[in-house]
Design a protein around this nucleic acid. Structure first.
Lengths: 192, 192
DNA sequence: GATGCGACCCTAGCACTGCTAGACAATCGA
DNA sequence: TCGATTGTCTAGCAGTGCTAGGGTCGCATC
């Protein structure tokens, strides 16, 4: 029995290694550089080993996305905790969100740009994703305004942040003004 | 001389055919299905012909993006013209934008999601892209509010629309509520 | 401790991708 | 009519995600 447990531990460890290596490689050289061959070489196994853990490259991207979502949720909550008052919390949340996207572009891509084969906005949405949304929601409901559904407000707020994040990263928006854009956004969206 | 002119006309026509076919194929089966082989087969030429018009697949995507930008700019202006008053114009603009993204997902991807090798937010940004932004700007400056730079306001407004468009299309946001999200967004962002 | 079995992993290969070199044919100017 | 140039195609390269099959290792059993 203990032999089997050890094997499972080793398997789980190797799976984490795959995900961490994929993330690392993606951050270093972009997702295009994350090929199954290169990934296999870095973890010092052959390609087929990857497929004994994941159905394919898509699932690996999805796994990176889940890890990233958990990380982001924690960062968002920490940023919100450090702020005083609902409005300041909203601002801190927005800055933390864009900061995460800027510091972890590959992970952010895995979460929202690439196809990681993950379900969204459904009952079977993976927990880390729902939790990341919850981290936004619980810190925004106080500024949604009267008569506005907090969930809907959070969706709009999130979409705006997502737009800023992706357009900035793709070179569509000059990054120097990010701070002012956040200021304007929070100023207008957040009520009292 | 007229022979040369005819040849240039034919070349230009074939180039338009390539772009239109790429767009069509992408809308039908997604950009992944737009391979140089399939594209060449559809235009009834061999692959290398594509490379006599474009440096590579990237440039073809970029060409589709430019056509799309021109189309979008026209649609945005038409929608804005049909509305009465600054605020209603902003609303109409937002609906037209999301409508375009929903009706032409592949073109929208070419413009903002994929790498078409286009320069943005620079002096050498292609005219159609600058013009599409201008179409937003000229219909939003009246609702930017006092003391707010219209360009900055347009960027934020645009980012929010872009976020809604991409998250909705990727299944991250349920599409049923799109109308209410637009309502909330315009209601908060637009100042009288 | 030997043995048979099963889990595990690797080599090799498939069909596909974007892209290009070089041969060939059609068209043009003289 | 002939030579040169332009244009196009066939064939092939290196690389992609993914998989079938064989072989080797470590384990549970006798």
């Amino acid at each position: 029995m203990s032999v089997q447990e050890r094997k499972e531990r080793e398997r789980a460890g190797r799976e984490r290694l795959i995900v961490a290596t994929a993330r690392e490689l993606a951050e270093q050289q972009g997702w295009d550089a994350v090929t199954t061959r290169r990934l296999a070489e870095r973890i010092e196994y052959s390609q087929p080993v990857l497929y004994s853990h994941f159905r394919g490259k898509r699932e690996i991207i999805g796994a990176v996305a889940l890890v990233g979502a958990a990380e982001m949720a924690a960062l968002l909550r920490a940023a919100a905790r450090a702020a005083d008052g609902p409005r300041a919390r909203a601002g801190a949340l927005a800055r933390a969100y864009l900061d995460f996207a800027e510091r972890n572009p590959a992970v952010y891509d895995a979460m929202f740009q690439l196809d990681g084969g993950l379900a969204f906005a459904h009952d079977d949405t993976p927990e880390p994703l729902k939790d990341a949304f919850a981290a936004l929601l619980e810190n925004l409901e106080d500024v949604a305004g009267d008569g506005v559904h907090p969930g809907l407000f959070t969706e709009v707020f999130w979409a705006a942040l997502h737009g800023l994040a992706t357009l900035t990263r793709a070179g569509r928006l000059p990054p120097e003004e990010t701070g002012r854009r956040i200021g304007l956004l929070v100023d207008r969206l957040a009520q009292v």
